[in-house]
Design a protein around this nucleic acid. Structure first.
Lengths: 133, 133
DNA sequence: TACATAGTGTTATATTATAACAATTAAATT
DNA sequence: AATTTAATTGTTATAATATAACACTATGTA
């Protein structure tokens, strides 16, 4: 019989860390997360990184690669983290997930010069947000 | 009179580090660069990181954010590193710079839902290269 | 020459992330 | 319920990536 596991039930550490990131108004860095969850019994970096890895794989959070920071998925339909796009203000560091179906369609269908398609991507746009201009 | 400085003359350390990256068949990491240039007198991480920063700003090299690695710009027309796209094989880690004018046009003209445009971006596509499929 | 800007060399340290191992918990199968 | 399998946890240690601060040097421009 095909082996099936629970899909989106978070474990204790995953839930603690997800809740913290989800409540944060800005992306959080791993050691800032660690500092904030120490009162809940999570004491070591590895406990944080393990939960982050799983949450990223589930698509519950995304990593902003250029900032080494993690943000909760804004996009309720986004179950698995395969195709992500963000806008980043270089002045105030405000970061927003972009959900544009035309963008995601364009990128999902993009072929390189060898005709190859890539279903997974990460796009980071940089500029100044409205407030900072 | 408007102040002008030399534009693309590399300094000694910048040239040593650029040459190394440019000759490398794959992206190089900072400490691997350091190891390789120690015989040329570059002894400390900071000397490497400073040169890397400048080379990135000049557009001579690009940083692959998801890999913390640096690759020489493949694109002779790319003078300033504002708009970059790469394909990354998740199996063999082969990384290629994508230069597609339709892609760059699409992204340069992309507007988010607030109507905001971003002239600077970094895009990383993931998948399996021809060999690895 | 003198001034401004960029680059260098150096030591120390901060930040980000993983290896290895033993123990525990949870879920699926018998 | 007992078994077994996979996932998660806790822990210590350490690896990998990156920057701060300071004194000094080289280069370009006025």
């Amino acid at each position: 019989m095909k082996t099936m596991y629970k899909e989106h039930t978070l474990t204790k550490n995953q839930q603690i860390i997800f809740d913290l990131i989800d409540k944060s108004p800005e992306p959080m860095k791993a050691y800032s997360i660690l500092f904030n969850v120490q009162k809940k019994g999570i004491k070591a970096p590895l406990q944080v990184y393990r939960a982050l890895d799983k949450l990223v794989k589930m698509g519950k959070i995304h990593k902003i690669e250029s900032r080494n920071a993690f943000i909760a998925c804004q996009n309720s339909s986004c179950q698995v983290s395969k195709a992500t796009a963000f806008s980043i203000c270089e002045m105030c560091e405000k970061i927003t997930e972009i959900s544009s179906s035309s963008l995601s369609k364009y990128l999902a269908n993009f072929k390189d010069k060898d005709g190859m398609k890539y279903s997974k991507y990460n796009l980071e746009f940089f500029g100044l947000c409205k407030k900072c201009r």
